[in-house]
Design a protein around this nucleic acid. Structure first.
Length: 316
DNA sequence: GCCCAGGGTCCCC
DNA sequence: GGGGACCATGGG
């Protein structure tokens, strides 16, 4: 694992973990879009205003190199949500299928991203796929973001920087019909008509309504922004994969509008519904149509799949 | 070529 | 409030 060939002054960081973490999975599972997998199993990205290479060594150590600036340990820990007690969250969700998914993908953590970048990334995401979203987001950074001094990486563009882009130029970057949405959102924020930060402190429903007033922001994009960018852990984003998982595994195959799936799921999974959403998303997208099976004999889990605890949307 | 994607909007009933 | 057409574009 030879590094040190980076063209910037290198700052090294290292951290011992108290809880489980699957760094590669958490960075690549489709919640953040700027982490680029490297041949040596590390990832390069931008965090805390600096370029960074990060990798995991064994189950309990995370290492990184950053530059030109130093990346404080607190920033890394905050981003990786190492303060989340996964076992406690799993118990709080209290659902055997989600429990099984936690066992299948140990150490998958939500990330604590920035509201603005999260919002724009998910406006870009609509009717697209993870690979293409990553490419488009990277293009935005390369064209409008501030260079970080390493000669390679750019920061994600600020609202002011993105508001300088013309709708036409955005279209040329593969944004298609989403171009005017990005343009309008960037201008609304750059002009001080909309503020994202206060939405962290708002009640979930109020913040959600505020986001959905923005063009190109519906329930799903709002929920992703709330969950990944604003710390509203009860948000339950419903995309195609999550909709499939809920319909097939919980609703007996009965189709349902996505807003009803979201509402039912928030009620069913509770205060940490967002974690349930991410595990179901990954299980259905990667694991396939088969419902995650409980690994036998786990203590503390919610009771085994007794075949009929399938409480539907109107179930008791 | 084909189906699909971390959907939203608008129009219609 | 619910169902459909339409929206651009690239991944696999």
């Amino acid at each position: 694992m030879v590094r040190g060939s980076l063209p910037w002054p290198i700052h090294r960081g290292r951290m011992r973990l108290d809880g489980p973490l699957d760094l590669a999975l958490s960075l690549s599972c489709g919640q953040a879009f700027r982490w680029c997998a490297r041949p040596d199993s590390g990832f390069r990205g931008v965090l805390g205003g600096t370029a960074v290479d990060v990798w995991q060594r064994g189950p309990r150590e995370v290492h990184w190199e950053s530059g030109p600036r130093e990346l404080p340990k607190e920033t890394m820990a905050d981003y990786l949500r190492l303060d989340d007690d996964l076992d406690a969250i799993r118990r709080d969700i209290g659902d055997w299928r989600v429990d099984a998914a936690f066992s299948l993908y140990p150490g998958l953590r939500l990330l604590r991203q920035e509201p603005w970048e999260t919002l724009i990334s998910y406006v870009v995401s609509q009717m697209s796929n993870v690979a293409r979203i990553s490419r488009t987001v990277e293009t935005l950074a390369a064209n409008f973001g501030t260079q970080l001094g390493d000669g390679v990486s750019n920061a994600f563009p600020t609202p002011a920087q993105l508001s300088q882009a013309s709708v036409g130029s955005l279209r040329l970057m593969g944004l298609g019909y989403r171009a005017p949405h990005l343009f309008e959102i960037a201008n609304a924020i750059a002009d001080g008509q909309v503020f994202l930060e206060p939405m962290r402190e708002m009640p979930f429903g109020e913040a959600r309504r505020c986001l959905m007033e923005l063009p190109g922001v519906g329930p799903k994009v709002a929920d992703c922004t709330l969950l990944f960018g604003m710390g509203h852990m009860e948000a339950f984003p419903v995309d195609r994969w999550v909709a499939r998982a809920v319909v097939e595994w919980y609703l007996g195959g009965e189709q349902m509008p996505q807003e009803r799936i979201a509402r039912w799921s928030r009620e069913h999974f509770g205060a940490h519904a967002g974690y349930a959403s991410q595990y179901l998303f990954h299980a259905r997208r990667v694991g396939g149509a088969a419902c995650p099976a409980p690994v036998g004999g786990e203590e503390g889990g919610t009771h085994a799949p007794a075949a009929q605890d399938d409480t539907g949307p109107d179930g008791a």
